[in-house]
C-alpha cells in the first residue's frame, strides 16, 4: 500500500498502482497514472474507453466484458490494445479507477 500525489491530491494505491478507494477517482488520476502504463499522452480515444469503463462501473459495480467495451466504443479489439497495451482489463481499468482484475487462474 502506498500513497501517490496526483495533481496535488493524495490517493492510496496498491503495489500495482490500483486505487484503493475507487469513489475518489477524478480525471487527474488517469492522467497521473498513464505513464506507468507506457502512455505518454491520453488522447480522445483513450478517454472514450476510460469514460465508458467508468460509466459501466458506476452503474453495475463490475468492469464490463471486453466484448461490450468494443461494441460501445466502436473500437476493434486491436485498437483497444493499441491504446492500452496491457489490455482493457488491466491498464484501462487502472486508469479508470476500477478494481484490479481478479486472480491468476
Amino acid at each position: 500500500m502506498s500513497v501517490v500525489t496526483l495533481a496535488g491530491k493524495q490517493f492510496e494505491v496498491d503495489e500495482d498502482g490500483f486505487m484503493q478507494d475507487t469513489t475518489q477517482w477524478t480525471p487527474d488520476v488517469a492522467t497521473g497514472l498513464a505513464k506507468s502504463e507506457g502512455i505518454e499522452v491520453l488522447t480522445d480515444d483513450h478517454w472514450k474507453v476510460i469514460n465508458y469503463l467508468r460509466e459501466y462501473y458506476q452503474k453495475f459495480n463490475v468492469a464490463p466484458p471486453i466484448r461490450m467495451v468494443c461494441k460501445q466504443t466502436g473500437f476493434p479489439l486491436k485498437r483497444i490494445y493499441e491504446l492500452f497495451s496491457t489490455g482493457p482489463a488491466k491498464g484501462a481499468c487502472k486508469l479508470a479507477g476500477l478494481p484490479k482484475p481478479t486472480g491468476c487462474i
Binding site: D14, F18, M19, Q20, D21, T22, T23, F60, N61, V62, A63, P99, K100, T102
Partner: peptide, 10 residues
C-alpha cells in the same frame, strides 16, 4: 477495508 477494491456483484 479492502472491499472497495473488489467487484462485489462478481
Amino acid at each position: 477495508e479492502k472491499l472497495k477494491g473488489c467487484e462485489l456483484p462478481l
